[in-house]
Computed example of a mutant assay.
Amino acid sequence: MTNSPARYQPAFQPAGARTQVSQATAIEQSRAIAEVQAAVLVAQQNRRSKPIAVEEMRDSTAQKSVADRAFFSFPRGGETVSGPSIHLARELARCWGNIQYGVAELRRDDDKGESEMQAFAWDLETNARNAITFIVPHKRDTRQGTRQLTDMRDIYENNANAGARRVREAIFAVLPAWFVEEASERCHATLQDGGGIPLATRIANSIGHFDGIGVSRKQLESKIGRPSDEWTEQDLGELGITFNSIKNREITREEAFPPSRVTAADIESGRPTEVPAKDQPDERPAEDQPKDTERDGSQPASAEELKGLTAALTKAGIKNAEERKAFLSAREGRDITAVKDLTASEVASTIRFLETGEEPAGDQQ
């Protein structure tokens, strides 16, 4: 007598024989079919009124909270790519009515490091349907190169971001082009109007918002191309789109506002360069300046501090020695051959940036 299990051999099924399914699967299939049929029937019995849909769209796009999230913007190949966002697409689908849309993960292959997904939008009245099946690699592009994703939360967020972009295109594919164009124009007008707030106040508020994420007035003026007191409503609208793109993690702060690099030619020519905030003297009265309760940050970092920095670099995916040298040299603006070349304050600043994405107040430019 043997203990080896017998190899499973499926029973032969003649041509045309139906595959057995479980009762739960059969019920779910029937429910899904009935749900689609009911949705189509309701849509046919309660057809949309285009004048009401247009009126709803115009009322919605006049709201600043809608206009603030209506567009995206990010740099690519030296140019700025912008357009209507997924938030505007969903809002227009709601206004138009009788539209179903969504995204589903069909398959996940952890060995290959990819997910197969499908995004769709379906106008139940006209039967216009757009479906996109696509592969999402479990990777993320960073300033240090492509990084493989292994954490389940990172993979979920990566898939959700890729799916949202396809859903946006699917919705716009079934909506009338004139409907989307008018909505976009009205959102731009709402952004420029600013809800009736005086332009000077809106400029000050915009500068304050960007200061909260580590972007200085000088960086904003460099991006716009003129001083802040000469900004127009259109300039503020573009800055608002950029701010929301950073806030929604569509782009990073460094991508939207690349740090200015001082070259050897700049130094030799004697052209003025911007001094980093951390190198500027503190002009506050001595009694208002912070007291140094710790050791001088310009001293070499201790072994414990260097160990913490190494751990932070590894966690951020910067494991190769060459990648670390390139990252640290670009960050500090000087040649860094090893982590031990950093001072205590530079180590602390870099760890905070890697862990939170934020610069200490004294390091923001």
Rank of each mutant, 00 (worst) to 15 (best):
R48Y: 01
Q45M: 12
G78I: 11
S82M: 14
A43Q: 05
A53Y: 13
V36S: 02
A43S: 06
F72V: 09
F71T: 00
R47A: 13
A67T: 01
F71W: 07
V54A: 07
D59Q: 05
S73V: 14
E56W: 10
V40L: 14
Q37G: 11
P51V: 08
R48T: 09
Q37Y: 08
S49Q: 11
M57E: 11
E55A: 10
V81W: 00
G77Q: 05
F71Y: 09
F71E: 01
A53L: 12
R76I: 13
Q45E: 12
A53Q: 14
S73L: 15
K50H: 15
D59A: 10
A67G: 03
T80L: 07
Q45L: 13
I52D: 13
E79I: 11
N46T: 02
S82F: 15
N46Q: 10
R47W: 08
A39R: 07
N46K: 05
V42W: 03
N46I: 00
A43Y: 08
A34W: 01
V36D: 00
S49E: 09
R58L: 00
T80K: 01
A32V: 10
R76F: 08
V54E: 07
T61V: 06
K64N: 08
L41S: 12
F72P: 06
T61M: 00
R47T: 13
E55N: 12
S82Y: 13
K50D: 11
T80R: 00
R58H: 02
A70W: 00
R48A: 10
L41Y: 04
A32P: 06
V81H: 04
